[in-house]
């Protein structure tokens, strides 16, 4: 990613996605900021990264809509002339005891987080293959690595993303396309803000760093994985030393 590149980021209007966009802005990249519903927030992030030297445009797409998701890469490529990297960050959760979750709730999580991302990546593949150094970075989760109670569908979807990393990493590696993932632990975002502090604190107490993570700390890891290198099919755990 050292030379200016076109990077498509999903879930870019807030939280980790917004932080990734801000972190990449200084590199002078062309950023395609994808959002689902909050146009105002996406515009705000676009303005921030433009002020920092990046070119940016916002794209609306609902990751649970198969056609919108498959077609998003072509819209981005039409605007920027190609795509060099995809950061698959969009995600949602329906938490609760597994016994209480209905099929439509489970389905919406799987469709948005896992198969939506899968459709997006496969739609972007022709453009990544034309890039000199195509890169894919997926934002998985601690739940995908070791599981979390109350988040069975979410964990399954994020575990599936680790599987996507293994699958595409093997298939696309010989083409020079890097495929990796990060697995954040508890990070200061809207998603974790909705959780009760007493739910989070025990996790923090048994992690090596004993504190909640910041979105920019995930963005650092994503930026590293966007650089050309020898890392492939790997999931970097950014969890303050929780998983061990």
């Amino acid at each position: 990613m050292t030379p200016p590149s076109t990077i498509l980021i999903t879930g870019a209007s807030r939280g980790i996605g917004a932080s990734i966009a801000e972190h990449l802005a200084a590199g002078g990249h062309r950023l395609a900021l994808c959002y689902r519903s909050d146009r105002g927030a996406a515009d705000q992030i676009a303005a921030t990264v433009q002020a920092a030297g990046a070119e940016a445009e916002v794209f609306q797409a609902d990751m649970s809509d198969p056609q919108e998701t498959r077609e998003l890469p072509a819209r981005v490529a039409a605007r920027f002339g190609g795509i060099d990297a995809v950061v698959g960050n969009a995600g949602m959760t329906k938490d609760g005891p597994f016994f209480t979750l209905q099929a439509d709730q489970i389905s919406s999580v799987i469709r948005t987080n896992l198969t939506g991302t899968l459709r997006l990546l496969l739609g972007a593949l022709p453009f990544l293959e034309q890039s000199a150094a195509g890169r894919i970075v997926l934002v998985s989760s601690l739940g995908g690595v070791y599981g979390t109670d109350g988040q069975v569908p979410y964990s399954a979807s994020k575990g599936g993303l680790i599987g996507v990393t293994h699958w595409l990493g093997e298939l696309l590696g010989p083409k020079g396309i890097g495929v990796n993932a990060v697995a954040p632990g508890f990070i200061e975002t809207d998603m974790t803000a909705a959780l009760a502090r007493e739910r989070i604190q025990p996790f923090l107490d048994v992690s090596a760093l004993r504190r909640i993570g910041k979105p920019e700390e995930i963005a650092q890891a994503v930026r590293f994985l966007l650089e050309p290198g020898y890392v492939q099919s790997t999931t970097i755990r950014c969890d303050g030393g929780f998983a061990r």
């Binding site: 597994f98 896992l114 899968l118 739940g143 995908g144 690595v145 070791y146 599981g147 979390t148 109670d149 109350g150 988040q151 069975v152 569908p153 964990s155 399954a156 979807s157 994020k158 575990g159 599936g160 680790i162 599987g163 996507v164 293994h166 699958w167």
Partner: peptide, 15 residues
Amino acid sequence: SPIDTMARRAAVKSF
């Protein structure tokens, strides 16, 4: 598929 496999493992760990 590794996708299905890894998803199942994460679901099992959580459940």
